[in-house]
Write a protein that binds this DNA or RNA. Structure first.
Lengths: 227, 227
DNA sequence: TGACATTTGTCCGTATGTATA
DNA sequence: CTATACATACGGACAAATGTC
């Protein structure tokens, strides 16, 4: 682990422990260089991570300020396992099979006719409350040792361990009305509105490793931009 | 304008002109330091901007790669004026008035009973096609010279010129079904699904300057995360 | 497999610019 | 006006990953 990541994590722990008031002032760069025995460049890199993740913001000539929890705590637009890090995340598998790729998927995954895809649907639960339903397709040719047992953990982590390179996660968000089956799985009313996030997970270059449709139980996501 | 922003803009122009194939290799840091007569730190800062905005990604030991246009061209989750920069953006004002703040708004804006809010609804059009309907509230006490003429340009820019500090834009996204009036304004079918983005724009500390409900005409947004 | 050059990533010290209080 | 604090920029060194011979 690099030094700035380590420092960033320590600062995040401090902030999440409630050590600072929302909108309150964080220690300055000079103080932090001494506290962590690091150069100013390294401290600034750590602080920049905290900015990107919504924990703090800064004003030239003034200082670093701690953001209120809603800016970093809520349903953010990242991967699911990231969103629910440190939480009691589990899975219920609804379906796992191997299918022939349709015309669209052949093109999307750059496969040849007759090649196959893993296909699964699973519910992700936090503290036994359903938060999303995922439907995913992945090329069999890329993952020869993939099986149902992987669905009970993080599939992203499996892909990372397998290839050591996930370059992109491209997401599109859209509004949907839940059909009766999905609503039942997510314990919502039929026809209630929610958000769907379509993920395209790439390995290298244009190699698409996973196509996922993630249907949320809750009808909101949050994001933050800072100057 | 700082040097790295200038370099970043030049690189973006190069990429958008189609000078590179999607997934193709960008020149290396060393080459760019010579091309722009800048230090490696400055080049890296410029490249880091491009990464954050979805234009490129990098791999240690290998190089910088140009992303396909869908990663940066589409409806991204930023401010509207940012999303449609360089486009022919115009406004149609539906309503502009001054109202007493409700209980909720008094609390949200930290106002005292009896204080007032500007309230407006406007349609934003790109090439005369409606893209969003905005409904906004802003405290009169913060903006004594605000009037309807400002609604035909960027209100964000007006706020920035007025106070020189916008610290945060906190956004929440939710799915909605368009009511008949909104659907008509956005030229969509009644009850069609779309996305709503609720913006809270902050000045300094906890000073909320604007609360906006932005209803999109199109039912999608995109985002990108990169390792 | 191993050695090597290349390229990005991390880290340090230092100087100067600029906004804030 | 001045001190403080963040922002930008330079130069240099070494680490780590990659691609190739």
């Amino acid at each position: 682990m690099s030094k700035y990541v380590d420092i960033a994590n320590q600062l995040i722990t401090m902030i999440e422990s409630g050590e600072y008031r929302p909108w309150g002032l964080l220690e300055g760069e000079l103080y932090l260089t001494r506290l962590f025995s690091a150069s100013r460049v390294t401290i600034r890199k750590a602080l920049s991570q905290l900015k990107d993740r919504g924990y703090i913001h800064s004003r030239q000539g003034s200082g670093y300020y701690v953001n209120p929890p809603e800016f970093y705590k809520e349903q953010h637009l990242t991967t699911l396992s990231d969103r629910y890090a440190n939480l009691n995340l589990s899975s219920a598998v609804l379906e796992f099979n191997i299918v022939y790729a349709s015309e669209e998927f052949l093109k999307l995954f750059h496969l040849f006719k007759g090649q196959k895809l893993y296909h699964y649907r699973r519910i992700r639960l936090v503290d036994d409350i359903p938060v999303t339903l995922e439907e995913t397709w992945m090329p069999v040719s890329l993952f020869d040792d993939f099986n149902e047992s992987h669905l009970y953990g993080s599939v992203m982590k499996y892909i990372e361990n397998r290839y050591h390179v996930i370059s992109h996660d491209f997401k599109q968000i859209q509004a949907v009305a839940l059909n009766s089956q999905t609503a039942r799985h997510l314990r919502k009313e039929e026809h209630s509105l929610s958000l769907q996030i379509i993920h395209k997970v790439y390995l290298l270059k244009s190699v698409l490793a996973q196509y996922t449709i993630e249907t949320q139980a809750e009808n909101y996501l949050s994001a933050l931009s800072i100057r």
